[in-house]
Design a protein around this nucleic acid. Structure first.
Lengths: 338, 338
DNA sequence: GTGAAAGCGCTAACAG
DNA sequence: CTGTTAGCGCTTTCAC
């Protein structure tokens, strides 16, 4: 498979590669190349099915018109929706998108960042699960354009677009309290060090404290992201045996909610009568499930849109611009599960 | 942002770029480069935070270890799941993935194919909505490795992994018939020329014919993919006014099912008592919705896995291998909506 | 054990 | 109006 190059076009037309390059890049008029020649070049390019070798172009000019998106799992509807949104916006601005999943593996995350750098992406959007943020810190130091989404990192002066998870969580627990639920468990997803998780835990604790209630560590469960069904089942069974009086579960992650629903159904536990269930993130089916699920909804579209806007701006400024921090307030959607 | 190159390492160590390249590519031992020198190079590379410039590498060796995935909409759970599966498998084999969505725009599809070629991807996995398959045909002619998924194209001898949509549809309608539903509408998504859609229509017609029933064109609805809510609503209202006796809707696409559920709910139409509903594709929430949704489930994971396997094999063979056709039989999952 | 030199395809500065 | 030249960073052949 030998691809046609600018040289091939030039040779078959008896002109120089430069001329062909100029024409094909729309700089023909600027350089006063005759319309006839231009037409010939363009026609020949089509005839030979020419498509520019981006590797060569990138090597020469350093830009790729590509941005990288790193998330924990592209199959999660939350990230899938963000990815779709980012793709559309980026595409409109002439950028392509490389999407990568880390599956919460911090080594893989670092590898992916290096890989994207190697590929000369012009910028990145990252939902990081980093503990040691060395790789991200390098990006910052190198003034490489990037914006964090969804999860904070303990680094100053970097772009970020995320939800105010603590407030979201606080509102959710508060709602449960107002509804009269006294004994409330929270299910957190691992890795628990990521900011969205710690913040959701903080919101839960704060809400209980503000209501002068005790925090019972026994009611705070950690569900491993790669063993969601098992751990949720263990957690629920533990509740049933040790805390039969429990009235509500705040499932702070949409995948955990799915698991809980399955398990409750298997155990013939009726929501919300036997047990209330509050979720985080709004997934389309929460509106049709039995029962419909109350949840804390993040502005997914806005996260995607703003991330792209900020990133493109940063790219334009060569990483020199003043960094932006955007925190979106999530909204409570009350349905039937509480 | 000046990245460190092989030359930088070479200079600071007073060795040649050749040596550095050799060491960094694990060819040090083969070329008898001393362990001490190798260690120095590797250390220096780390120290200078070296990451190879893929553009240069690609320009030189022609390969990128990247594959492209083109689907209609990455935010659709069906494709999101395939993408996840493909990403994992490809990643294990050392390949990166570029994911693109066409949003059913054939122009965009062609642009994307050219873009991926420009980027020197080593192969592609494509769910095509092409009418005029010129671009895909060019791939074939150039012996460029690719595999179609989900949708057939009228081209011989190309790799494809798809479901037997006609049989799936046939089984679904047959099930409705057996359950005693006599009057059955089908909702098809546009563009209707894509094979999965025409096949689902064919299966519907065949099942009715085999049961000696008339085909009523009034009961075949086309829902525009970018106006799903509106068109579904129009269709349902048309049914209610013109065919009040209708007993079942076969919604041959998961997004349409979502819309139908919303609309039925708004109209206080009870499923399955007032109207049965059968879907296509299995989405996790079909198990929790009210009612739980009967559907034709494709083996999504298998589509993804096989597509990658075949693609990698084709890449290895330089596009010379005998092309493979895989058609997976979907399964009926009967729940409460029928 | 190591280095020099060529070339992948493209673009940009400069020359006519 | 068009062409020459150089070089982006890397790998590879060949030479010492």
């Amino acid at each position: 498979l030998k691809k046609t190059s600018i040289k091939d076009i030039a040779n078959s037309l008896n002109v120089s590669p430069t001329l062909v390059s100029l024409v094909l890049n729309g700089k023909g008029d600027d350089n006063g190349i005759s319309q006839i020649t231009q037409a010939k070049v363009i026609e020949k390019a089509k005839e030979l099915n020419y498509s520019p070798n981006q590797a060569a172009r990138t090597l020469r000019i350093g830009k790729t018109e590509t941005i990288g998106l790193i998330v924990s799992d592209i199959a999660n509807p939350f990230y899938a929706q963000i990815a779709g949104r980012v793709e559309r916006k980026a595409s409109k601005a002439g950028y392509n998108l490389i999407v990568c999943s880390t599956y919460e593996d911090t080594i893989k995350e670092n590898d992916l960042i290096r890989m994207l750098i190697s590929r000369n992406v012009d910028g990145m959007i990252i939902s990081s699960s980093a503990v040691n943020c060395s790789e991200i810190f390098k990006l910052k130091k190198a003034k490489f354009p990037f914006v964090l989404i969804d999860r904070k990192l303990p680094i100053q002066d970097i772009n970020i677009v995320a939800s105010d998870n603590k407030s979201g969580s606080y509102m959710a627990v508060n709602h449960l309290l107002e509804k009269g639920y006294r004994s409330i468990a929270i299910f957190l997803i691992t890795p628990t060090h990521i900011s969205s998780v710690t913040e959701r835990k903080e919101g839960y604790i704060q809400a209980l404290e503000d209501a002068d209630m005790n925090i019972d560590d026994q009611l705070i469960f950690e569900i491993r992201f790669d063993h969601i069904m098992e751990d949720s089942e263990t957690a629920i069974k533990s509740i049933l045996s040790k805390n039969p009086g429990l009235e509500a579960v705040f499932s702070s992650n949409n995948s955990i909610t799915t698991a809980c629903l399955k398990i409750f159904s298997g155990l013939k536990i009726k929501v919300p009568n036997d047990m209330a269930l509050f979720s985080f993130d709004d997934v389309d089916w929460f509106e049709f499930s039995e029962p419909k699920i109350s949840t804390v909804a993040q502005s997914v579209d806005e996260i995607g849109d703003q991330a792209v806007d900020i990133l493109l701006e940063d790219i334009k400024s060569n990483g020199e611009m003043e960094k932006k921090q955007v925190f979106l307030m999530p909204k409570l959607i009350i349905r039937e599960s509480t």
